Simulated assay, not measured.
Amino acid sequence: MTSWKTFAFWVLLLNFSALFPAPAQNANGGKKRIVVLGDSITAGYGLDPQEAYPALLQKKIDAAGLPYTVANAGVSGDTTAGGLRRIDWALGKDGAEVLVVALGGNDGLRGIKPGQTEENLAGIIDKARAKTPEMKVLVAAMQMPDNMGAEFTGKFKELFPKVAKDKKAELVPFLLDGVGGVESLNQDDRIHPNVEGQKKVADNIWKVLEPILKAEEKVP
């Protein structure tokens, strides 16, 4: 092929490519995205990140052959107010198909009014769905120890199912079910789950998350 013909060939090819661009590659390799918005429990405080429950959920998802990738958006010490401020950042420009909200424990320990925690959780869900209207949301409930007072602990416990109902989200009844207060499943601080405790936390979420993912993928 002569040089001018070669030049014309490449011009034609470039113009054709501009008119019919190749499909963009999905940043997650074609997989859908699950974002877990949480605090130190989600971040895996005191542990390797691969031992934290979001990474364990990923293993369960992979074993089930489901096309999802889990993003750990846990920040130690975070509150629902912090989650509300950073939800847009956590979701990123691509958003997510599923959001797990595992915040509120630090609110309770700081004595923040349950009504404010409820408002923040609702705001997180509203912001997330403004980006992705069809997003599935799981609210992972927390509970406070009795020494916080009966009135406070009661109102705190009630706010999570209320938010889930009001916002048509799924409820994980208690994130630390079977873990909170169990010495063998927590680190020396008796607050943060150890390796075995994180496995139990992952199981608690998976009970609610698995049917949602399978329903979305129409897996029996």
Rank of each mutant, 00 (worst) to 15 (best):
V75M: 15
I61G: 03
Y68N: 13
V101C: 01
V101M: 00
D166I: 10
D189K: 07
G154Y: 08
A64E: 14
D166Y: 12
L84G: 03
G92P: 06
A52E: 01
P145N: 06
D107S: 15
G149L: 09
A102R: 09
A140V: 14
L56N: 09
G95Q: 02
G77F: 09
P173E: 13
G95C: 06
P193A: 06
Q187N: 07
D107P: 06
K127P: 08
G82N: 03
K131G: 02
G108W: 07
G108R: 05
Y68D: 13
T80P: 04
G181W: 01
K162W: 03
D94N: 10
K136H: 11
M148D: 04
D166P: 06
S76K: 15
V137D: 09
M135S: 12
R190Y: 14
T79I: 03
L176V: 09
T132G: 11
G181S: 02
F156A: 02
E158T: 08
E183R: 15
E158P: 07
M135E: 07
Q187M: 13
P67H: 01
Q50V: 10
H192A: 08
G181D: 05
G105K: 09
E183I: 14
K113L: 09
Y68G: 13
G74E: 01
L99C: 10
G181P: 00
I125D: 03
G154R: 08
E151N: 05
E134R: 15
K127I: 13
K93R: 08
G181V: 00
N72L: 13
E183T: 15
Q116V: 14
A63S: 14
G105Q: 10
I112L: 14
P67M: 05
K59N: 03
L185M: 01
D94I: 09
N72T: 05
A169G: 05
A122C: 11
G95S: 06
A71C: 14
L99W: 12
A55M: 12
D166A: 12
G65P: 13
G111Q: 01
A71Y: 15
A90E: 08
K60I: 07
N106G: 02
L84H: 00
Q50S: 04
V101W: 00
K167M: 03
K167F: 01
V101N: 01
E151I: 01
A164S: 05
M142W: 05
N72A: 09
A81W: 02
D188H: 08
G108A: 11
A128R: 13
I112Q: 12
K168E: 09
A55C: 10
G123P: 07
P133N: 11
G82S: 11
K155M: 00
G178M: 08
I87C: 04
S184F: 00
G82P: 02
A164I: 01
G123R: 05
L91T: 14
T69H: 14
V98F: 10
I125K: 02
T132N: 09
K167I: 07
L56M: 03
K168A: 07
P145E: 13
V100S: 00
I125V: 11
T117M: 13
Y53R: 04
G95N: 01
M135W: 13
L84R: 01
G77D: 08
K162T: 03
P173F: 04
L57E: 15
P114T: 05
K167D: 07
A96R: 00
Q143G: 15
L176N: 12
